[in-house]
Each structure stands twice: as C-alpha cells, then as structure tokens.
C-alpha cells in the first residue's frame, strides 16, 4: 500500500450565504486508506463532503487531489477526475431503473471505457441488483437503494469514494454487510472517506478519523487511538 497523500483539504472556511458552517477545516487521506469523519447532527459533515465534491466552494483554503488543485473545479469535472460521492439519503434517480442508475454512474469518458467490467464487479458485490436491474429505483427497499447508490459510485471507476451516512435508517445487520463490502472495495485500491453519526461503529472500521464539532475539527488521529481517548468515550459512547 503506497502512503502518499491522495486528497488534502487545507484550512477551508465554508459558508451558506453569510452563514459560516466550516472553520479552518483540514483533513488528509492517504492512498488506500479508509478515513472516517464523525460528528453530531449539524456539525457540518455533509457540507465538508459537498465542498470536496465541488458542489460548494470554500471561501478560504484549498483542496488538492492527486497533486492537482481542485478548489475551484466544478462538481462534474471533479467526478470525472475520480472522486465519487454517494450522497446522504442515497439520491437515486427515482424513475430510472436500477441498471440505468448504475449506467449513469459511468457517464464520464474514462469510466465508459470500463463500463462492462465495473458492472460485473458491482453485480458480484450485490447479486440482488442483477435480479432487480429492470426495476425502478424508487420501488427498492432502503437497503437495496443504498446498494445501488454505492454501485453507481463504483461505476465511475473512482480513486476516492466518499460515502455520506451510509447506515442511516438501515438495520445493524445490514450495515455490517455494507461495511464488509466497503472493506472489499478498499482492498481493490479505492480510498474510502466515510461520514457517520454513529461514531463508535465508524471508529472501529476506519484507519484514521476526524471528529467534527460545530464546524471545527476537534480531534484527529488513528481511529483506534481515538476509540481509547477519554473525551471521545465520554462524548460519544457514554462510558
């Protein structure tokens, strides 16, 4: 596993209009890592992810990906560069079929070339999706929708996969299955950035982690170390 920094967020401030939501946030991800961002409701996790994906732009600071400055890049260009986001709430295209949702994931030129290969991979990870491929996305259960959302991300042949609140509304058993898939995805060399409200779970799965509190990074380090931090235990595990 190479250990160069693949994605680096440098001291960004982000606003919604005049409302500041992120203050001086910095994170970095090494190639092949699984990184977690934990934090309570409204801490600014989704905002951070949207800024990395280019749906929002920071007022201050910069974002680098694979040695390239992507701070001002448009979301669709960033996607083509190999950062995919599985958004909060899945955000499937409800009136398109499962297969169409997956295919639209491979919209960018580079991904199109590997379309068949990636589709086979997705069906291997989630065999149920092959059975359901001609069903409209909106008719699937929440868990299956999350599978499509992750599969759609994989279809873009990403270097980095960002997943916002994967486990929201899903049963713990099902979430364990999804985490198994994430580890498999990572084993294939895709760097994973996870955001969860479920801090305990996330810290046990990830390599390194950041804790975000009302728009600021308050703790960071190896996920395992953070598990043992007293502050984290007090704040999130109630022990």
């Amino acid at each position: 596993m190479s250990q160069e920094v693949l994605l680096r967020v440098n001291n960004i401030d982000v606003f919604y209009g005049s409302l500041q939501v992120l203050w001086d946030v910095s994170i970095e991800m090494k190639s092949g890592e699984m990184v977690a961002i934990a934090g309570a409701n409204g801490a600014g996790k989704s905002t951070l992810l949207k800024t990395i994906s280019g749906l929002m732009h920071p007022a201050k600071g910069s974002i680098e990906f694979a040695g390239m400055d992507i701070t001002r890049m448009n979301a669709y260009d960033i996607a083509a560069q190999g950062i995919c986001q599985v958004p909060e709430g899945r955000r499937l295209f409800p009136n398109m079929t499962v297969l169409q949702n997956l295919m639209i994931g491979s919209y960018s030129q580079k991904a199109r070339a590997k379309r068949e290969e990636n589709l086979a991979r997705v069906y291997e990870l989630f065999p149920i999706l092959k059975e359901r491929q001609n069903q409209l996305a909106k008719t699937l259960s929440g868990g299956q929708q999350q599978m499509v959302a992750i599969g759609r991300g994989l279809m873009s042949n990403p270097k980095v996969m960002i997943i916002d609140e994967m486990s929201l509304g899903l049963s713990p058993l099902f979430v364990s299955d999804l985490f198994r898939v994430l580890h498999e995805i990572r084993a294939r060399g895709i760097t994973v950035l996870l955001v969860e409200q479920n801090v305990w779970r996330t810290l046990h799965e990830a390599d390194s982690a950041y804790v975000l509190e009302t728009g600021r990074i308050v703790m960071s380090g190896r996920a395992q170390d953070l598990c043992e931090e007293e502050e984290v235990r007090n704040a999130y595990f109630g022990t």
Binding site: S53, L55, N74, A75, Y76, D77, A79, A80, C84, Q85, P87, R91, F93, P94, N95, M96, I104, G105, Y107, S108, A111, R152, S156
Partner: peptide, 11 residues
C-alpha cells in the same frame, strides 16, 4: 430528476 446528483455523476 435530480440536478445536483446528476452533477456528482459527472454530468
């Protein structure tokens, strides 16, 4: 169906 998500797909 969803403009923002379409952008995330590279559109």
């Amino acid at each position: 169906q969803d403009r923002q998500t379409a952008e995330l797909m590279g559109i």
